[in-house]
Amino acid sequence: MEIAVLVKPVPDAETRLRPDAKGLALDPEGVKWVLAGYDESAVEQALLLKEAAPGTTVRAISYGPVARAEEVLRSALALGCDAATSLEAPPEAPTDAVSVARALALALTKHPASLVLCGKQAGDDEGGIVGPAVAELLGLPDLGVATNVRWDGGPGGLTMERSVEGGLEQGRTALPALVALQQAWNDPRTAKLPNILKSRKAPIERIPAAEVAAAMAPSAATAPRRLGFRLPPPRTGAKMIEYKTPEEAAEKLVRILREEAKVFP
């Protein structure tokens, strides 16, 4: 079985975010781009399927500026993916989900996969559209969000589970298909040191910007454009209660909750 995992470079959670000079995007200066969140679960799911079904290969695919995309692809290789494809973002490319999905679909037409996995939404903008859009563009059944996927080899051999309110839903289907992974139920592994060293030297296929731009072209004219990027206003300070006894503190707190915060009637 050929599995493709779509991974997005997102800023490391510890990055101090700030807008760029034009106020249009995140300032990339000093940002560390990482494989994170649901995408990590998708990679872990792909590797678990690979371990369960010998002969399975896993290709990680990422779109973005070359250095960013290749950084997360190297992380995916270090974790155990077999191959990696980087789609070079064209200069001034549209940033909307459908355009990005067109780029990713290009890689999948070059490397058809029987199972496409992705995170249910990106770790930064939490859009959740790219995966379904890729399925639509390639005519793949989109099975929605799963918490666990198993493959037993037979026809209709893909079993998937997802959490639903108060329970667990199970279903079976045939391949090909696209599945988006829910949160990290599977406790994504950490890359081992020798594999990190190997991944730095592993080849990464690069699809050049011109080819990617051509794939993105059909919706370029209608793609929504971002108007601005800014930080939320800073939170206002906490209110300190001056008191001498605990009783006084409680009395003042209740008064504030009642009269100012209006928590109690």
């Binding site: 190297r74 270090a78 950490t190 890359a191 990190i196 730095r200």
Partner: peptide, 12 residues
Amino acid sequence: EEQTSLRDMARK
């Protein structure tokens, strides 16, 4: 890049 990735892995 290799040294950075080793350091990051140890940090994690």
